[in-house]
C-alpha cells in the first residue's frame, strides 16, 4: 500500500468514526432532551393505556408500535400517539373524552391481539375462567335441586354436569367477567362543576354538534331499577331512548350528537356506565334542611373505560379518568 492510499484510508476511517460517534451521541442526547421535555410518563386524563396495560415504564419499550390493537378495536377508541409524546411515540392510547372504550367488543380483542403481551391477557383469562367455574357450580346446584324434586333426594339422572342442560352457555358470563376485570383507570368526580352536585338537571344533547364520538346504550343490567325508590334515586328506566321512543336497550351505535336526554337531576355518568352499579351510583344525602344532596359515587368496580367522561354534558368534563397502570 503506498503512502497516498494509506492516507486516504486513514482519513476515511477517521471520517467514518466521527460519523458514528457523532450520530450516536446526537441520538442519545436527543433521547435525553425528549425525556426531559415530555418525560417518561405521558399519561394523563386524556391519555389512558388500553385494557390490561403493563406498568408504564415497561409499556414504553414493550410496545413495538405495530398498531394491531388499533386495527382490531371495533369502537375505534384506540389511537397511536404522535411524536409530541416523545418516547411514547406511536404507542396506543385512549382519549375517553373523544371516544371511550365502551366494552361493546366481543372479547377484549385489543388485549388478545397484542403480540408482546404489553397488554397482558392472562389476568382476563383468569377472571373469565373463574366466572365459568362459578357459573358451573351454580348450574350444578340448580340441576341438583331440580333432580331432587323429580327423582327424590340423592338420585342422579346419569347425565353429565350439563349433558341435558339446554340453557348452558357460559360465554356471555365469561366475557362479562373479563370486561369487569379491566382496570384502565379510575373515574374521579370533579364536584365543583358537576351538575348533579349542584342539584341541576340536564336536557338536550350532552356534546357539541360536531362531536364525533359514538354512543352505545349500556346493556340492561339484572339490577335494572323498575321502581322509583321513595324518590331518593333519580329514575333510570324512563329516560332510556325516550327521544325517539325506542326500546330500552338499543344495540345500534349512533353518534352521541344525535342523542337527547332529559333528566331532572343529571345522572348521565351513572345511567350510561356499561358496568353499572358495581362501578358508579348516585348517592343522595338528606341535608339538615330536608333537601337532597346528590353526588355520583365511583365504586371499586370502575374499569376506567371513560364512557362517563364522554357523556358528561359540562363544558369541561366533570368526571375524569386517572390512569392506573
Amino acid at each position: 500500500m503506498n503512502q497516498k492510499s494509506t492516507e486516504i484510508s486513514r482519513r476515511n476511517f477517521l471520517k467514518s468514526g466521527a460519523v458514528v460517534a457523532g450520530s450516536l451521541v446526537a441520538i442519545g442526547a436527543g433521547v435525553g432532551i425528549v425525556k426531559t421535555v415530555t418525560g417518561n410518563d405521558v399519561r394523563n386524563k386524556n391519555f389512558l393505556r388500553p385494557p390490561g396495560a403493563a406498568k408504564e415504564k415497561d409499556f414504553v419499550y414493550g410496545c413495538i408500535k405495530c398498531g394491531l390493537c388499533v386495527q382490531i378495536c371495533p369502537v375505534h377508541a384506540i389511537r397511536l400517539a404522535g411524536i409530541n409524546k416523545g418516547l411514547s411515540y406511536s404507542t396506543p392510547y385512549i382519549d375517553p373524552r373523544s371516544q371511550p372504550c365502551d366494552f361493546s367488543c366481543d372479547s377484549l380483542q385489543c388485549v388478545e391481539t397484542c403480540p408482546t403481551g404489553v397488554l397482558d391477557f392472562r389476568q382476563f383469562k383468569h377472571a373469565g375462567t373463574e366466572a365459568i367455574i362459578a357459573y358451573e357450580e351454580e348450574r350444578k346446584a340448580e340441576r341438583q335441586q331440580q333432580n331432587d324434586s323429580i327423582h327424590g333426594v340423592g338420585m342422579h339422572d346419569g347425565k353429565g354436569p350439563h349433558g341435558a342442560d339446554k340453557g348452558y352457555n357460559p360465554f356471555p358470563i365469561q366475557i362479562a367477567a373479563m370486561k369487569e376485570a379491566v382496570r384502565m383507570g379510575t373515574a374521579k368526580l370533579i364536584p365543583e362543576t358537576c351538575l348533579a352536585v349542584q342539584g341541576k338537571g340536564f336536557t338536550g344533547t350532552p356534546r357539541d354538534q360536531d362531536f364525533k364520538g359514538v354512543y352505545r346504550s349500556p346493556a340492561p343490567t339484572t339490577t335494572e331499577i323498575t321502581e322509583q325508590e321513595g324518590g331518593d334515586r333519580p329514575r333510570r328506566h324512563q329516560q332510556r331512548g325516550n327521544a325517539s321512543g325506542e326500546q330500552i336497550y338499543e344495540k345500534q351505535a349512533s353518534p352521541l350528537r344525535n342523542k337527547t336526554f332529559a333528566r331532572d337531576i343529571c345522572n348521565l355518568c351513572v345511567t350510561e356506565c356499561p358496568i353499572g352499579e358495581k362501578a358508579i351510583v348516585m348517592s343522595a344525602e338528606t341535608m339538615a334542611d330536608g333537601t337532597l344532596h346528590y353526588s355520583p359515587q365511583v365504586l371499586d368496580g370502575c374499569t376506567g373505560c371513560g364512557v362517563c367522561v364522554m357523556v358528561c354534558p359540562t363544558a369541561e368534563a366533570s368526571i375524569i379518568v386517572l390512569p392506573n397502570n
Binding site: 450516536l24 441520538i27 442519545g28 433521547v31 425525556k35 415504564k57 414504553v60 419499550y61 410496545c63 413495538i64 408500535k65 411524536i83 418516547l87 411515540y89 406511536s90
Partner: peptide
C-alpha cells in the same frame, strides 16, 4: 446499547 441504556425502543422512534 442505546435501547438498553434508555429503556425504550430508541431505534423504532427514528
Amino acid at each position: 446499547l442505546l435501547a438498553f441504556a434508555t429503556s425504550s425502543l430508541v431505534f423504532e422512534v427514528i
